[in-house]
Amino acid sequence: MDGDTLYSIGDLARLTGLTVKTIRFYSDQGIVPPAGRSPAGYRRYDPTALARLDLVRTLRDLGLDLATIRGVLDREISLAEVAAAHAAALETQIRTLRLRQAVLTAVARRGSTPEEMELMHELAKLSEAERRRLVGDFLAAAFGDLTGDPAFAGVMTSMTPELPDDPDPEQVEAWVELAELSRDPDFRASIRRIAGHIADHVAEHTANHTAERMSDHVAGHTGDHMGERMGERGRGVARVAVVRPDAAAMARALAAPALAAGVGPASAEAEPYVTALLTATGLSGATLLDRLEAAGDPRRERYAELLAVINGWPPPESLAPALTWFITALRTHLPGRTHAAHPSG
């Protein structure tokens, strides 16, 4: 193109597809200054103006403001810097839009009321720090003074939901339900009771050991993916332990063959299983029953299921069949308890 060619505003409008009004505005803002004026006083623009207008239109289409565009055109800031900053901003906007989409999809699927939709939106748009505060408050209330015990650090970490930046509708629904559940005082008390049982279990099996085993007891309470390998230090001696399974996990293992064989928990055939569990745990019948009943709280299992959805874990194995079987068997066969007579074996 001839470098001496000059264009009127009308010429630029035809060449760029922009309106005369828009080009005049850009010219008035100093973004596309005229190269001169005609004898009649009309603005004239050189080929550089045409190139600048093409760039301005592209940057505007990408959402950049005029002040930033002027900085790029005047070489006060590099295009690469602007592109990086704008890409980051767009990423934030995209996450926000995806979250809104997930909330609306969940609302449509659940048939939520306006109040439920408002709560869902408020909980879903919490920042990561705000979500951690909400869950941290729940864990602090549930574990009480145990929060400072190194042996429980991994347990509490493994009970923390990690909602992705771009959750799908199922994860949004799961997060909202989990958040509501975590604020339930009765559920907090139930988890506190289970935490106390875990503490008792650890104490029962660490009194005479320098290196203890601490495994899978949370799996018996909050899902297989919540068991953690933990380390602690005491009196200058390193302790790395993975503790043996607790009562709930043992009940799951021992009930499996009974359930598979169709053994009724109130039948005489159930007594050897009860004896085996009492022997394996070393607990009294009343204590064992109390621990299994606490672990059998359906809200605990629901928390584990929701946590798995949010964190992208496989669904946890249900403890309900095994716990229900052993709770019934213990109530039937514990000494001193009144129960229906069963055939002698």
Results as ranks from 00 to 15, higher is better:
residue 218 V to C: 08
residue 116 E to M: 09
residue 296 G to S: 13
residue 92 T to G: 12
residue 165 D to H: 14
residue 61 D to A: 13
residue 260 A to V: 04
residue 43 R to T: 00
residue 56 V to A: 04
residue 205 H to Y: 10
residue 141 A to N: 13
residue 222 T to M: 14
residue 201 H to K: 00
residue 269 E to G: 04
residue 121 H to T: 14
residue 144 G to R: 07
residue 339 H to D: 05
residue 289 L to W: 02
residue 164 P to I: 07
residue 111 G to S: 03
residue 88 A to I: 03
residue 311 N to K: 04
residue 166 D to Y: 08
residue 4 D to I: 00
residue 110 R to G: 00
residue 313 W to Y: 15
residue 246 D to P: 11
residue 132 R to F: 08
residue 50 L to H: 04
residue 20 V to C: 01
residue 69 I to V: 12
residue 169 P to C: 04
residue 23 I to E: 01
residue 192 R to M: 01
residue 90 L to A: 11
residue 165 D to F: 10
residue 189 A to W: 04
residue 254 L to H: 10
residue 263 V to M: 01
residue 265 P to T: 08
residue 2 D to V: 00
residue 154 G to W: 11
residue 279 T to H: 09
residue 85 A to D: 10
residue 291 R to M: 08
residue 280 A to F: 06
residue 226 M to Q: 13
residue 215 S to L: 13
residue 107 V to E: 05
residue 325 W to Q: 05
residue 181 L to R: 06
residue 55 L to G: 01
residue 263 V to C: 02
residue 266 A to C: 05
residue 141 A to M: 03
residue 243 V to A: 13
residue 296 G to D: 14
residue 141 A to R: 15
residue 121 H to A: 14
residue 185 P to L: 10
residue 58 T to S: 13
residue 313 W to I: 09
residue 162 E to H: 15
residue 203 A to K: 13
residue 27 S to C: 04
residue 317 E to S: 12
residue 298 P to W: 04
residue 207 A to C: 02
residue 121 H to C: 03
residue 87 A to M: 12
residue 33 P to D: 00
residue 39 P to N: 04
residue 114 P to S: 02
residue 266 A to D: 15
residue 228 E to L: 10
residue 292 L to F: 01
residue 23 I to C: 02
residue 136 G to T: 04
residue 310 I to W: 05
residue 31 I to E: 00
residue 233 R to D: 11
residue 335 P to A: 10
residue 54 D to Y: 04
residue 290 D to F: 00
residue 169 P to D: 08
residue 128 E to D: 14
residue 53 L to K: 00
residue 205 H to N: 12
residue 15 L to H: 07
residue 142 A to E: 06
residue 291 R to W: 09
residue 142 A to K: 09
residue 187 F to V: 06
residue 222 T to C: 07
residue 81 E to P: 05
residue 130 E to M: 10
residue 99 L to S: 09
residue 134 L to N: 07
residue 170 E to W: 08
residue 170 E to Q: 14
residue 323 L to P: 05
residue 37 R to C: 07
residue 217 H to G: 00
residue 251 A to N: 06
residue 263 V to H: 03
residue 237 V to R: 15
residue 181 L to Q: 09
residue 13 A to E: 00
residue 171 Q to H: 04
residue 108 A to Q: 14
residue 243 V to N: 09
residue 46 D to A: 15
residue 187 F to G: 05
residue 267 S to V: 07
residue 79 L to D: 00
residue 234 G to M: 13
residue 131 R to P: 06
residue 112 S to W: 12
residue 198 I to T: 08
residue 61 D to T: 10
residue 160 T to Q: 12
residue 49 A to F: 09
